[in-house]
Design a protein around this nucleic acid. Structure first.
Lengths: 345, 345
DNA sequence: CTGTTAGCGCGTTCAT
DNA sequence: ATGAACGCGCTAACAG
């Protein structure tokens, strides 16, 4: 049997209450006694049974997820995953709630963070927007010893405990590598479609993409980045214009969420010479395009993984427990039409 | 507060013991009483607190992992992951042990399964070898109500509860798709290297690979499958011979674990015309070969994910709890030299 | 400062 | 067939 608090008490010659005070770092114990207890703990190799402790405390973990509102389909999928986590929360003594904030609005995000902080949750997950004020707000949470994980989009320079999302530089590098090899030496310029260069994720993807293109496939020139604001109509227009202006274009990297507009533009030039296309995020639109051969590969981040990972990390941090690094690394999934998963999307 | 057994007792007008008998489907309760209790449970929406139940029972979960012995790097990595799970087992009341069995040996596997069954574990994970006897042995475990999950290689036709591994047909399809596109029309035959056609995962990969090659890249002929038994020396010899016999070979698909031998063979023909190589499993050997350009892509199954998933599923099955399907799907990771993760391998 | 005691939600004797 | 009472490992009053 694993040693219990009783064993510590016996080994140290004190009562349970004293052991408990030492274990929970509460005041009211002489240093001598404390040392004796701590040595006993060390000696017999005690590890606390968190489940029993939670039972005794009737502890529940109130976690808050702060997500952007709006009709971005990736974010809506993310929200659905949070709802799924919410549903199975009670089984593990967790109560998850969602706070929505207008997308890309730092000011609103700061307000939400401070409001959430006032409710003293056991942990907060947030899709970050980069700004000094947001960093400060996150740091206020941390100052209150509230664990914070950034979700999908990180917040460099903040004191967040963890980032649950993919390495976007690596994603861009992968895109370049695939595109370059798929083209197999066929010369011609490459177009890049982004949502906005104001978001960190998009910038990082572009950086990674550029680096590998320059290094490994210097024969291709990159056309000026198209910023479609992730808006279908605008994107379609800009892409069509760009392709018309550079008829020799052989490849497109769509690193943002503007795939609907991109696909529409591609469909209109069915009989034109083929263009190799790499896009991000597996949605029903990109999945269909993949199957039709309009898109050649999709790089995806699994929102379900990200949410479950965020929850696990928040709980671990709340318990002061260790995190399994490898388990929490979110991989970039590469989908071709031949390895699409069956039921999602 | 969530309803407890006390609430049920009060609502049904019976004692705690009776409620417990109904909850655990034990005998000694009149049908009338039983019905009344069950209705109360339904009405107040009771869900059992598994943690508290386990505490009361001092329950521990003895799980057994049956793994192939031998010096295959992938399997050794898998074993390391099981050891990691072993180390953090006690925190969740689990005691994991490992039983090793010679690779590709159905008879030995059957003996091991029966021996393990005699110890009445709470669950068994096994890297399966396909044979009717193994299926029968697994079914004996299931007949004893012991949950079984197959790991890495599945056992079709058995009553196993779950398969913790990748979709190997899809893996083969993906390999073909990548290889075909990387070749970009350069003609020539393609060699296939396997370990043994006795394991299902290897057969499935080959099936998927063949299907896509035939359909999408009919210009390439497939050379006869080389079975290297995942043995480095034998593999190197067979591969060298095959390449010498078919000097025009443009691609190799290594679908088993014989990569060390393959890489050795590739190194000996450095100055020969380039061959596009797709292999399975990221190990330190394949990682190095990827960086050197000897291998073009590696399809990987994350052994850590598989082990953790197997453990989660076994625990859920042992508790009679639900499994989160999406969480337990093991994705096929595609690694190019540009998206290698940092610290593993 | 330290110890006693009564639960947390559930399972399990042992009586009745 | 049913119920009372104790214990699992831990925390939190309340005494002393």
């Amino acid at each position: 049997m694993r040693p219990t608090v009783h064993d510590i008490a016996a080994a140290a010659g004190v009562s349970l209450a004293t052991v408990d005070r030492v274990l929970n770092k509460r005041a009211g114990v002489r240093k001598v006694t404390r040392d004796r207890v701590e040595q006993a703990i060390e000696r017999i190799g005690y590890v606390r049974d968190v489940a029993a402790a939670n039972l005794a405390k009737s502890r529940i973990y109130p976690f808050v997820f702060i997500l952007p509102s709006g009709d971005n389909s990736f974010m809506r999928g993310l929200e659905a995953e949070v709802h799924a986590a919410m549903a199975r929360g009670p089984l593990e003594r967790m109560v998850i709630s969602i706070v929505k904030v207008p997308a890309f609005d730092a000011e609103a995000l700061v307000a939400a963070l401070d409001e959430v902080r006032a409710t003293a949750p056991a942990g907060v997950a947030v899709v970050a927007v980069e700004s000094p004020e947001v960093i400060a707000a996150v740091n206020r949470l941390r100052a209150d010893r509230i664990p914070v994980v950034t979700l999908v989009s990180d917040l460099a320079g903040s004191a967040r405990d963890h980032f649950a999302g993919v390495d976007n530089v690596a994603a861009g590098r992968t895109a370049a590598s695939l595109l370059g090899r798929f083209l197999g030496g066929r010369p011609g310029p490459i177009a890049v479609l982004a949502g906005s260069m104001l978001v960190r994720d998009h910038r990082e993807r572009l950086d990674g993409f550029r680096a590998v293109m320059d290094e490994d496939f210097p024969g291709h020139t990159l056309l000026p980045v198209i910023e479609g604001q992730d808006d279908p109509v605008l994107t379609e227009k800009l892409v069509s214009e760009a392709l018309a202006a550079s008829p020799g274009t052989v490849g497109i990297y769509s690193l943002g969420a503007g795939n609907r507009g991109l696909i529409a533009a591609l469909k209109q030039r069915k009989d034109a010479p083929p263009v190799c296309v790499i896009a991000h995020e597996l949605t029903r639109h990109t999945r269909a395009a993949l199957n039709e051969g309009l898109i050649d590969a999709v790089l995806n981040q699994d929102a379900g993984h990200e949410v479950r990972s965020a929850v696990r990390v928040l709980k671990a941090k709340a318990d002061g427990a260790a995190v399994i690094g490898a388990q929490e690394r979110i991989y970039i999934d590469i989908f071709l039409k031949d390895n699409l998963p069956f039921d999602e999307g």
